[in-house]
Design a protein around this nucleic acid. Structure first.
Length: 203
DNA sequence: TACGAACACACTCTTACTTCA
DNA sequence: AATGAAGTAAGAGTGTGTTCG
């Protein structure tokens, strides 16, 4: 008996990102590629390739000494944007209507909220990730509970089997008639002779 | 078929904020 | 009450895979 027979879930698919929504293209982005940093322009580190800059991150808190010397304004720390409650509510409403955006929707939202389209895009991206995370957590809890229930059930069945086995071992073949005799009776009935023969069960 | 643009997602980092000793 | 460390939430950057023209 396999314990996982009843545990076939879709969690693995979900975790593995098995569901990949097909992209609905509604047009090309007209902004140039480097416009993605328009909101928080990266520091001029020296190289132009953004991907090269990946590991050249902005200074950590422990390295603030050089970041603090912003005399020329060249090392100004990125000011993290916090969306207002109104903006968040608007985005949430929008998200409940559609979890993905086309270009027009993104631009309209950005215009209405007075933020960059890139920010709208990032917010939706993070929002989808959070939704998926919550869903995964829910599935995990559900599966965990199911597993616990099955373990409990399995334990009961094992105990039942043990009980049956112990009862079975208390039975033995009657040497005279070849039939099983219950130990509780202490004898078996020999029908053909219509008499009782004492039998002490072994075992 | 190859290619590039646009996009989604996973992973990660960073910053702002909260909690607690 | 002040404060600093640890924890958390969320905005943002980057790499990669997919789709489509």
């Amino acid at each position: 008996m396999r314990v996982d027979d009843g545990c076939n879930t879709n969690l693995a698919l979900s975790l593995g990102g098995g569901e990949f929504k097909s992209n609905k293209r509604h047009g090309r982005e007209e902004t140039p590629p480097n416009n993605r940093f328009a909101l928080f322009p990266r520091h001029q580190v020296g190289e132009g390739d953004d991907r090269v800059r990946k590991r050249l991150r902005s200074p950590s808190r422990s390295e603030d000494s050089e970041a603090a010397e912003t005399g020329d304004g060249k090392e100004a720390r990125r000011k993290k944007l916090r969306l207002s409650k109104e903006q968040l509510a608007f985005l949430e409403d929008s998200f409940t209507e559609h979890s993905t955006l086309n270009l027009r929707q993104k631009q309209e939202l950005a215009s209405q909220l007075k933020i960059q389209p890139r920010q709208v895009e990032v917010w939706f991206q993070n929002r989808r990730a959070r939704t998926k995370l919550k869903q995964t957590e829910g599935e995990y809890k559900s599966l965990k509970q199911r597993c616990e229930n099955l373990s409990e059930e399995n334990q009961k069945l094992m105990e039942e089997i043990q009980e049956l086995r112990s009862r079975n071992s208390a039975l033995a073949m009657c040497p005279s008639c070849g039939q099983r005799a219950a130990a509780s009776h202490g004898f078996c009935v020999k029908k053909e002779q219509n008499s009782r023969s004492l039998y002490i069960a072994g075992g």
